[in-house]
């Protein structure tokens, strides 16, 4: 959808945050669009370096190694993601919980962090946030921001694109997506269709994060499990459900997708509280829309 035929869309993709991140800008002259996209990718690269579970130098790795010993000062972005994560944990009674990294490691979905003490049944309640962007853990804990950082990155990227003058932009961080602009973007929802019609989301000025509980990894001698965990039950979320959450900010959509995945229709009130809604499909059942019902484009 070209807003201005003189300025063709510019779209680029780079590997960050463990996935493919693509950014599309429409309506800007090519050189300006490339400058804007380069700036947005620079923000995403910075978030990748701060919040990577794999990189020993990231804030997340430093926290996993040392925050149980003493308070650690982190980058304001890491602090802000942790503060948001705590808010989602509180509101969902721990269904969303960044400390599920211990389970993800034991199930072979994340590598064992080097030089970090074995976690001791800690939860999000053991994370303490202090002034000056300092963070401490009350007991040894492994956190992973993989369930929220992509949404945060899409938000930051769109802000940067907007500052650079982009009026229409789409940032897609591995399926966590933010659309800036009034023209609806059509997004295919990756759920197998039984009929000859496929579900497509039309989204303007907002974000979507989708999850299908596709089995990612076979675990020897253990039950099949999808990529999501119900933090309060410390058990895998249903593997045959499809959920996508729509919210204004992508960080909200990203985090609440995990709750909607685990809790299904029970997450309705929580979604409403964050002005978010979810499209939900369970096998053999109709599509459901739950949560906040939006008014026309605000």
């Amino acid at each position: 959808m070209n807003l201005c035929s003189n300025n063709p869309a510019v779209e680029r993709a780079q590997p960050w945050l463990g996935t493919l991140v693509s950014i599309r800008v429409e309506g800007l002259p090519s050189a300006e669009a490339h400058r804007a996209i380069a700036g947005a990718f620079a923000e995403i690269a910075a978030i990748h370096r701060l919040m990577s579970f794999h990189d020993p130098a990231s804030d997340v790795s430093r926290l996993n190694r040392e925050a149980a010993l003493h308070a650690i000062a982190v980058h304001p972005w890491t602090y802000s993601v942790l503060a948001e994560a705590q808010q989602f944990s509180r509101a969902s009674d721990g269904c969303f919980d960044v400390s599920v990294a211990a389970e993800l490691v034991s199930w072979g979905m994340l590598p064992t962090p080097q030089g970090a003490h074995e976690p001791l049944r800690g939860t999000w309640r053991d994370i303490e946030l202090f002034s000056g962007n300092r963070v401490a853990f009350r007991r040894p804990l492994w956190i992973d921001l993989g369930g929220i950082a992509k949404g945060f990155a899409a938000d930051r990227a769109v802000e940067r694109l907007r500052e650079c003058g982009a009026r229409y932009a789409v940032v897609n961080a591995g399926g966590d997506m933010r659309v800036e602009g009034e023209n609806p973007e059509r997004i295919r929802l990756a759920t197998p269709s039984q009929s000859d019609l496929a579900p497509v989301l039309e989204l303007a000025n907002g974000s979507v994060a989708g999850s299908s509980g596709t089995v990612q990894q076979k675990r020897r001698g253990k039950p099949a499990c999808g990529p999501h965990i119900d933090g309060s039950r410390r058990a895998p979320a249903p593997i045959d459900r499809f959920v996508c959450v729509v919210a204004e900010r992508c960080v909200v959509a990203d985090a609440l997708t995990k709750v909607a995945m685990a809790r299904g229709t029970e997450s309705t009130d929580l979604l409403r509280r964050f002005s978010a809604s979810a499209y939900l499909k369970d096998p053999g059942k109709q599509w459901l829309r739950i949560g906040a019902m939006e008014t026309a484009a605000a």
């Binding site: 959808m1 779209e11 590997p15 960050w16 463990g18 996935t19 493919l20 693509s22 599309r24 789409v170 897609n172 591995g174 399926g175 966590d176 997506m177 973007e185 059509r186 997004i187 295919r188 929802l189 990756a190 759920t191 497509v200 989301l201 979507v208 994060a209 989708g210 999850s211 299908s212 596709t214 990529p227 499809f242 996508c244």
Partner: peptide
């Protein structure tokens, strides 16, 4: 118009 984005299936970039 073509659909350029898909949500719900996170791609791994490990091969890259």
């Amino acid at each position: 118009k073509s659909i350029r984005n898909i949500s719900g299936a996170t791609l791994s970039c490990k091969h890259i």
